[in-house]
């Protein structure tokens, strides 16, 4: 589905504006992640991720991103970080782990970058 007026591609480097177009694209993925607020749903996902993704009708590209545990891929497929954080929680990833993965750093280097921002 195309909406020309939704298509304001973000020119802020490294930033995806989560707008109507992305919210439509990522709906199934975000809906699955929202379900992880409930512990029994987290257990169901862990027991059989493929069946769980199928139940929420993720697109193949969204499934691939989840299989790879790749946050940038999930964002490209419409994932919103607030919902993705719940998926990251299943894998016991902190927001620093998630930040490190997206920036291609080790978690230690990412934490140091944050500390350095305080000294700037």
């Amino acid at each position: 589905m195309e909406f020309a007026h939704f298509d304001h591609h973000s020119p802020i480097p490294g930033t995806t504006l989560f707008d109507g177009a992305m919210a439509m694209k990522g709906y199934a993925l975000n809906k699955m992640c929202y379900s992880f607020n409930a512990a029994e749903n987290r257990e169901a996902f862990k027991a059989d991720p493929e069946a769980y993704m199928e139940r929420y009708q993720l697109t193949e590209a969204q499934k691939e991103a989840v299989r790879h545990r790749n946050v940038l891929e999930m964002i490209a497929e419409g994932g919103n970080i607030y919902y993705l954080a719940k998926l990251a929680g299943i894998y016991h990833l902190s927001v620093q782990d998630v930040g490190a993965q997206q920036t291609g750093m080790t978690t230690e280097a990412f934490k140091q970058k944050l500390l350095d921002a305080g000294r700037a």
Partner: peptide, 13 residues
């Protein structure tokens, strides 16, 4: 703060 994307970790004092 920014949690998502390649600009994750951005802070602007």
């Amino acid at each position: 703060h920014q949690l998502d994307g390649a600009r994750a970790g951005f802070i602007n004092r």
